[in-house]
Nucleic acid binder design. Structure first.
Lengths: 118, 118
DNA sequence: CGGAATCCCATGGGATACTG
DNA sequence: CAGTATCCCATGGGATTCCG
């Protein structure tokens, strides 16, 4: 998801920077899962359902590179690897929460505003 | 960006539904632009910078299909087409705003938390 | 258990040219 | 002006198999 410099309303717009970090379906979903607490690789895999190991690892590595989570390998057998959000990663909670709220309120059906009032 | 059923923490999770709507780089950027007000096709193209006409049209059609914006064709010459967010589309403002804030605060440099306190 | 390796597909997106 | 029409590429993601 490469792109040159910001060319939108505000140069160096924050939205674009955010998109390069949490762009992509699984990325966001992984974050949402980790916002609930530390998770092991297999926990994430199970929670996310139909994600391939390749994709999951890829996204986790990406998030780690961005400094959003830490990967802890426990030297035991069987191996245990845990992923935990850094404060930096937790700061994304606001965005994820907003997305969750919107998605819950604006369901395809149309029971949107009514559902909120009820 | 298709996917079966929700398999994450909460079944039918709102986050996933939101992702199917605003997933993608340009989609979000278009929304951010329109949150500032009605825009013509050429306005958007100029504001977004390096977006191809194909992509822009594609995303606009997608958003229209989702009921997030309305497309108004003015029967004049030269043609004028305006895009305006529906209330439904405007309700995404909270998410976009959160993304903007996060991106602004967590810049690569590292002047993150400090910038927020200042 | 937690991946790495490999192969393949779908889709978003880019560049360019052309038109109602 | 506001697209449409092609063609092509990059990347996210899927499925499967194998390994330390």
């Amino acid at each position: 998801m490469k792109y040159g410099r910001a060319a939108s309303s505000g140069p160096e717009c924050g939205v674009e920077r955010t998109l390069t970090v949490i762009g992509g379906k699984w990325t966001t979903l992984v974050l949402r899962e980790l916002l609930a607490g530390t998770r092991r690789y297999s926990d994430l895999k199970r929670a996310l359902g139909r994600v391939s190991p390749k994709t999951l690892t890829e996204r986790l590595r990406h998030l780690e590179a961005e400094g959003l989570l830490t990967r802890t390998v426990h030297a035991e057998v069987p191996p245990r690897v845990e992923y935990t959000l850094t404060p930096h990663g937790e700061s994304l909670g606001e965005i994820i929460a907003a997305m969750g709220r919107w998605g819950a309120a604006h369901r395809p059906a149309g029971a949107t505003a009514e559902a909120e009032r009820a």
